[in-house]
Write a protein that binds this DNA or RNA. Sequence first.
DNA 1: ATGCATGCAAATGCTTTGCAGCGTG
DNA 2: CACGCTGCAAAGCATTTGCATGCAT
Lengths: 156, 156
Amino acid sequence: MEASGISMDDLLDSLRRSGLRVTPQRLEVYRVVAVSKSHPSVVEIYEAVRRIIPSISMDTVYRTLWTLSQIGLTSPVSSSGDRVRFDSNRSPHHHFICAKCGEIRDFTSGSLDDMPIPREAGDFGDVWGAHLEIRGLCRNCRKPGRNSKRKEPEHG
Amino acid sequence: MEASGISMDDLLDSLRRSGLRVTPQRLEVYRVVAVSKSHPSVVEIYEAVRRIIPSISMDTVYRTLWTLSQIGLTSPVSSSGDRVRFDSNRSPHHHFICAKCGEIRDFTSGSLDDMPIPREAGDFGDVWGAHLEIRGLCRNCRKPGRNSKRKEPEHG
DNA sequence: ATGCATGCAAATGCTTTGCAGCGTG
DNA sequence: CACGCTGCAAAGCATTTGCATGCAT
């Protein structure tokens, strides 16, 4: 897991700094999200973790994900209306969200990374990170006839 | 309602262009979201519309909001984990989201508005709009002792 | 030792869906 | 006049919660 550039040490530090306990469940849930290339849903994370810790339960996954998000290690990504999904906060990236099918695609942008955080935002509190969220119509949904409903995303 | 800069004509055009029917429910739901300064939840929108169209039902509000979102007139804003909220797409703005309490604050930024959409995003499809999403810790949650749980946001 | 974290299972609601009648185009 | 849209009520299901036990500190 160290191979993919994930630092479990950072996780340990973050947990301890926040006065939270280091448990196998937390380690594994984090690892799964961190390794994932997409935006795993809670069930997907649950399934993956279960292969390592068969006794883990759904609610622990939920609780863990919120805990990790609260200390900045993961972020809920919401396809909004769909079930919640999670992103690890390593390697900053941005989202293209299709307004029609709800699909979320990642992209990176050097020019955006250089962009300074507007000070207006800093007035609200501590800024941990930022990403651009772009709404539009994906190639698939642009095609006539492809009237993809939100609940049956034809993927793209 | 024209007073607040909302163009009902745009709504009519958009609906017709998409082959959708113009109904009082759609007009009113859109108006409520467009007028709102914050990020109304579905229930809040429902309550507001009900004052004008007492017979409207919750599911119509849901359906209408998704419909409007699919043609780009509103956007689901997800406090993620919380219930869905909606934003009208007039006047571009950005979001500061507190990782701890989930509160979403708006801000505008001239410098950001000038920022070009990275072409990487355009590869995915048609771009309708973009906004920056900043995660961090709000002033309230920064204070020690204020361990605001996600479900009981102490507001800020 | 001391409590936070976990698992289990039941509860909670938000959100969706099927269908008949109505209103828009 | 035809078909999309609405309302109603019931179903679906993602997410949360209470509690006893286990484990990290």
